[in-house]
């Protein structure tokens, strides 16, 4: 049986790992390479690396950091942040990424998803979707949560999958950094309506939260940052506990 995946996320700013609350109030969480190697040893199933200050002049530095990390770890590695063209994707894959996450650029130019899938295969296309609950709906937000759109989470996810997205990285801005638990309802709705894996992100605070997002939220993978960065939850302990709860994990 296929395992549920535990994915630590490194948000990178100027080569350091940072973490915020509700996408703001960033604080330093350590050296990216050291953290990547530590997570790999602790049993992470995959790593996600998001460059949150990605600008054109910093691209080269990003590729170098990707190469340094990719050469050291033996688990799948997704890189994202400011990716807006096939050239960006190609450069990151060459640098050693296994998958590339696209977010705002994909929303503004959905054809990019199709072109990425066609050229590099769906397996490397992770579409990041940042969402927030307003009124009675979950809406998609762009530019790291700064710009609201009128599109609902479910509508955009379906479109992205139809265009060739291989996985969906669903981040609830309402839960991000709160440590109050994942947004299980919307995760479940999305996961049950698409036939590609959904990675739930935002809100992990306790081991129970992970259990809930897999059982109630029907997530295929759960992503978290600060609980791992600050050693609040050890990945090995987390996976052992999940196994005790009959959730299939790799140990």
């Amino acid at each position: 049986m296929l395992c549920k995946r535990i994915i630590p996320c490194l948000d990178i700013k100027d080569g350091r790992t940072v973490k915020g609350i509700h996408f703001e109030e960033l604080r330093d969480a350590g050296d990216a390479i050291e953290l990547a190697v530590r997570y790999c040893k602790e049993g992470a199933d995959e790593l996600v690396f998001l460059d949150i200050t990605a600008t054109n002049d910093k691209r080269k530095t990003l590729s170098e950091l990707v190469t340094k990390i990719a050469s050291k770890i033996n688990i799948p590695f997704t890189v994202g942040g400011g990716v807006s063209s096939l050239e960006d994707v190609s450069a990151l894959l060459k640098a050693g990424a296994d998958k590339v996450a696209i977010n705002t650029a994909a929303f503004k130019n959905p054809q990019l998803i199709y072109e990425m899938a066609h050229r590099f295969g769906s397996q490397c296309v992770v579409v990041g979707i940042d969402i927030k609950f307003e009124g009675a709906e979950w809406y998609v937000y762009l530019n790291g949560g700064r710009i609201k759109t009128e599109k609902t989470a479910l509508a955009w996810t379906k479109e992205a999958v139809a265009l060739g997205a291989g996985e969906i990285l669903l981040t609830s801005m309402d839960s991000d950094g709160t440590k109050d638990g994942f947004s299980n309802d919307i995760t479940k709705l999305i996961s049950e309506n698409v036939n590609v894996p959904v990675i739930a992100s935002g809100g992990a605070g306790t081991i129970k939260h992970f259990e809930d997002v897999f059982t109630l939220g029907k997530a295929d993978a759960a992503l978290a940052a600060s609980v791992f960065h600050y050693n609040e939850i050890h990945i090995d302990d987390l996976k052992k506990e999940l196994k005790r709860k009959n959730i299939k994990v790799r140990l």
């Binding site: 049986m1 296929l2 395992c3 549920k4 995946r5 199933d45 769906s122 397996q123 291989g166 996985e167 036939n195 590609v196 894996p197 295929d220 993978a221 790799r250």
Partner: peptide
Amino acid sequence: KVPQIGWN
């Protein structure tokens, strides 16, 4: 889900 993605 198809494709299968992950550890088995």
